[in-house]
C-alpha cells in the first residue's frame, strides 16, 4: 500500500513538474522564436509576458471540448493521456541530485528509453480516431518516425552506458568522467538529432506539419485535450534535455552541490533552447528523407560510435 502511495505521490510530483516545465517551455519558445524573428514575443500578460502561458492554460481548460461526430469516441478521448503519461513518468528516473532520483531503479536508462516510446500508441490512436485525413496521415507519420528514431537514440545512449558499465541513471552519473565529453561527442549529436525527432519537433515535426497537415494528429482536438498534447510535447523536450545533460554532461560536469546543480540546469536549458533554435531555423524534411536520415545516417554513426567506445572501454577499464 505504501508503495502505491509513494507511486501516486511521485506521479503527482512528476505531473506537476511537467506542467511547470511546459508552462515555462511554451513561454520560452515564444520568446526564443520572437528573438529569432526580430520581434518581442508575449509582453502584456505579467512581467515580460511571464503569465502568458498561464492565461493560455486557463483559457484552454475552459474551452469547449469537442469530440467530432464521426470520431471513434473512446480512443479519441483517451489518446492525449496515453501520450502524456509515459512522458511524464519518464521524468521520474532522472537524477536531480547527485546519487538521487525520484524513482531510482537499476535499469533507469532502459526505462527512460522505453517508456516514452509508448506514447506512439496515443499518437496513432489520436490520428486514427479523429476520422480526419490530415490526422490519419499525421498519426501514421508519427508512428513511423518515433519507431525509427528509437534505434539511433538508444544506440547513442548505449555508448555512454558501456563506458559506465551500468544502465542505472545514478550509476552512469557516478562513473562519468570529463574525457567522456570528447569520446561521446558523436553519440551526443546523434542523441540530440534523434531526440528532436522523437519529440516530433521541427525540422522533424512531420506528424503535425503545419504547412501540409494543418496540425496533424491533433488537428481535431480542442481545449484541454489539446493542451495535454502540447504539455506532452514540451515535457518531452524538457525530459530529453535533462537526460542529455545527465548522460552526456555528467549532470553539470560531475560537480556536486550548488555549482553542479546550476550547471545542470544551465545545460538542460541550453539543450532546450538549441532545440527551439533548430526548429525555427531549418525547413522541414520530407518523410522519405526523415527515414533515410534515421536508417542510413544516424544508425550507422551510432553503431560505429558504439564500436569505438567498446574498444576504448575494454582498453581503459
Amino acid at each position: 500500500m505504501s508503495s502505491f502511495a509513494m507511486g501516486a505521490f511521485w506521479g503527482l510530483a512528476a505531473g506537476l513538474l511537467i506542467a511547470i516545465a511546459a508552462l515555462i517551455g511554451v513561454w520560452m519558445e515564444r520568446k526564443v522564436a520572437g528573438r529569432i524573428h526580430m520581434r518581442i514575443g508575449p509582453l502584456e500578460a505579467g512581467p515580460f509576458g511571464l503569465l502568458q502561458t498561464l492565461a493560455d492554460t486557463v483559457k484552454l481548460v475552459l474551452k469547449e471540448d469537442i469530440t467530432p461526430a464521426a470520431a471513434d469516441v473512446r480512443p479519441f478521448r483517451l489518446a492525449p493521456f496515453v501520450v502524456f503519461v509515459p512522458i511524464a513518468s519518464s521524468l521520474a528516473v532522472i537524477p536531480y541530485a547527485v546519487g538521487w532520483a525520484p524513482f531510482d531503479i537499476s535499469a533507469g536508462v532502459l526505462f527512460f528509453m522505453a517508456v516514452p516510446s509508448l506514447s506512439v500508441i496515443g499518437i496513432l490512436a489520436a490520428g486514427w480516431a479523429s476520422r480526419n485525413t490530415f490526422a490519419t496521415i499525421g498519426g501514421i507519420r508519427g508512428a513511423a518516425q518515433m519507431v525509427s528514431y528509437e534505434l539511433p537514440r538508444t544506440l547513442s545512449v548505449l555508448a555512454a552506458c558501456m563506458l559506465a558499465g551500468s544502465i542505472s541513471m545514478t550509476g552512469v552519473l557516478d562513473a562519468w568522467r570529463p574525457w567522456w565529453l570528447i569520446v561521446l561527442a558523436p553519440a551526443f549529436i546523434v542523441y540530440f538529432i534523434a531526440s528532436i525527432a522523437e519529440v516530433n519537433r521541427g525540422p522533424f515535426d512531420l506528424p503535425e506539419a503545419e504547412a501540409e497537415l494543418v496540425a496533424g494528429y491533433f488537428a481535431d482536438y480542442s481545449g484541454i485535450r489539446w493542451a495535454i498534447f502540447m504539455m506532452a510535447e514540451y515535457g518531452g523536450v524538457v525530459a530529453a534535455s535533462l537526460f542529455g545533460a545527465v548522460v552526456f554532461f555528467g549532470r553539470g560536469l560531475g560537480l556536486g552541490g550548488v555549482p553542479g546543480a546550476l550547471l545542470f540546469v544551465f545545460f538542460a536549458f541550453a539543450l532546450t533552447t538549441a532545440m527551439m533554435w533548430v526548429k525555427w531555423t531549418f525547413p522541414r524534411v520530407r518523410p522519405d528523407q526523415l527515414m533515410t536520415l534515421a536508417w542510413k545516417v544516424l544508425t550507422p554513426i551510432a553503431l560505429v560510435e558504439l564500436l569505438v567506445v567498446g574498444v576504448i572501454a575494454s582498453w581503459m577499464l
Binding site: 522564436a33 529569432i36 524573428h37 526580430m38 520581434r39 521541427g202 525540422p203 515535426d205 506539419a209 503545419e210 504547412a211 525555427w280 531555423t281 531549418f282 525547413p283 522541414r284
Partner: peptide, 9 residues
C-alpha cells in the same frame, strides 16, 4: 511552406 518560418519573417 517548407517549414522555414524564419526565412518568411
Amino acid at each position: 511552406d517548407t517549414g522555414a518560418a524564419t526565412m518568411f519573417i
